[in-house]
Amino acid sequence: MPHAQISDDVSLFYTEHGKGGPPILLVHGWACDSGDWMWQIPDLAERHKVYVVDLRGHGHSSVTKDCYRGTDYAQDLSRLIEVLGCGPAIVIGHSLGGYIGVHLAVEHPEHVLALICVDPAYAPSMAAPDPSELISALRSESCHDLMEQLFTSFADASTPAFLTTWHLRRLLTVPRHVISESIAGMTTNNVVNVDQAMLRLRSCPTLTFFRSADDSAWEDAAAGTGPGMTMTWDGAGHWLHQERPIEFNAIVTKWIDEIC
Rank of each mutant, 00 (worst) to 15 (best):
Y99P: 14
L150V: 14
T164P: 09
H60C: 15
R56W: 08
Y99W: 15
V178H: 11
G29Q: 05
C117R: 01
G98D: 09
G97H: 12
Y122E: 02
V252L: 01
H177D: 11
S62Q: 08
P88W: 02
D66Y: 08
H103R: 12
M198K: 13
S136K: 14
H167G: 06
D220L: 06
T15S: 13
D66W: 11
I100S: 06
L96F: 10
E243C: 09
I92K: 05
G87F: 01
M231S: 12
H241Q: 02
G101D: 10
I251Q: 00
A222S: 04
D156W: 07
I116E: 07
C86M: 03
S78Y: 13
Q5S: 15
F13S: 13
K65R: 14
L138Q: 02
T71A: 09
K65S: 12
Q75M: 10
L240G: 03
L163C: 09
A128N: 01
R244G: 02
M126N: 10
S212P: 07
Q40H: 03
L55C: 13
V118Y: 06
M38N: 08
A4K: 02
L138F: 04
D257W: 03
M147P: 13
V102A: 14
A217C: 01
A157G: 02
L113Q: 08
T208K: 05
I183E: 12
A221R: 05
A105S: 05
D119L: 14
S132L: 11
T187K: 04
S180Q: 01
E141A: 15
N249M: 06
G237N: 14
E16G: 03
I135G: 05
S132N: 00
Q149L: 14
P23C: 07
L172A: 10
T188Q: 12
Q75I: 01
G20P: 07
I81L: 11
H144P: 06
V118D: 08
E247V: 10
E243N: 00
L201I: 03
F162D: 14
R170K: 15
W218A: 13
L163D: 09
M126G: 00
D66V: 07
A89K: 05
E110I: 14
G235R: 04
V192A: 15
C260H: 11
I256D: 06
E219W: 14
R176M: 14
H241E: 12
R79T: 15
D43E: 15
V192H: 14
I256Y: 01
Q40A: 03
L168W: 00
V192F: 15
V10W: 13
E46H: 10
L199N: 00
F210T: 05
K65F: 00
V102T: 15
A45M: 08
T225S: 12
W30P: 12
P109H: 08
N189V: 02
T164D: 12
D33E: 15
G57S: 07
L150T: 04
G93Y: 06
R47H: 13
L113G: 07
L168C: 04
L26F: 10
L12N: 09
W218N: 07
R47Y: 06
Q196M: 13
H241N: 05
I251L: 06
R139F: 11
A155L: 04
T173G: 13
L207N: 02
P129W: 08
D9A: 08
G70H: 11
G98Q: 00
L138D: 11
V91P: 13
R200T: 04
T188H: 11
I81A: 15
C204P: 09
G93I: 11
C143E: 00
A222H: 11
